[in-house]
Amino acid sequence: MPARGAVMAELRYLRAVNQALDDAMAADPSVVLFGEDVGEAGGSFGVTRGLRDRYGPGRVRDTPISEATIAGAAVGAALSGLKPVIEIMFMDFTTLVMDAMVNQAAKAHFMFGGQGSVPMVLRTPHGGGLGAGPQHSQCLEAWFAHVPGLKVVCPADPVSAYGLLRAAIDDPDPVIVVENKALYAMKVEAPERLEAIPIGKASIVRPGRDVSIVAYGAAVKTARDAAERLASDGVEAEVIDLRSLQPWDEAAVLASLSGTHRLVIVHEAVEAFGVGGEIAARMADIGFDELDGPIVRVGAPFMPVPFSRALESAYQPSVERVVAAVRRTLE
């Protein structure tokens, strides 16, 4: 294994998450991990592999299948001096942690009048494309982004996966880190240094002058591919990786919109009442005079994630749909 922070030839998403946990635990003894199968098994996706051996069964704990208590215990532990990082095996299972996250974690700092805070992290994978069906594929991040007191990040690549998780663990507030499980195998050329990436800052991953495409998570790649295709037709799309959903970088989106005057928002989550709707509404307000075309969203249709590959491939946002959306803004 390479030394921390040292040069690595390539960096895989899954490895980046593991490295972030490893580095955070090495740096701060109050960081603990717990969740279902995160210890001996190394996580159902292998994200926590090796950490129990390195940091012991006290700091990396296997829990029973008790999501509500995993999250509730993280709140209590965070109020009592630990920085717990919990894993909920699939984002679909976060339905079971809602009281702890929404009523407890999100509110504590506020409703206790600023006494203490809840420095916990909830990691969970979302996203389809793997034939996992209606209860193992959902993108529910908008639920959390809707709750004042929670922060939500969704890294689109290995470097962000490392940086956002480090920032989340360092953050004094509860942070939901949403990892797209289809990205776990993604690899990039490793940067010289891995470091924390500030929460709330977007990244322009491709500059362009004709249209802004805002995306997060796996949709960033879809947006980039669409931008490449558009470029062959002379349309230069600017692609923004939102990185953080709550808080989100509205200044960056507005700045981009002010340059391109057209906006498309892409995400894998259901389009209705989603993150894209929030961005669109906000830009229609503060960016109104910049708009030279309709704001167009590209997301999943209003239906559960289907199982069949034939159905699921039609369900997920495609390059073609993003290109068509961009064309609409350019009419």
Partner: peptide, 9 residues
């Protein structure tokens, strides 16, 4: 669960 987490800490 909050008390349980506190006990864990």
């Amino acid at each position: 669960p909050i008390a349980l987490g506190s006990a864990l800490a």
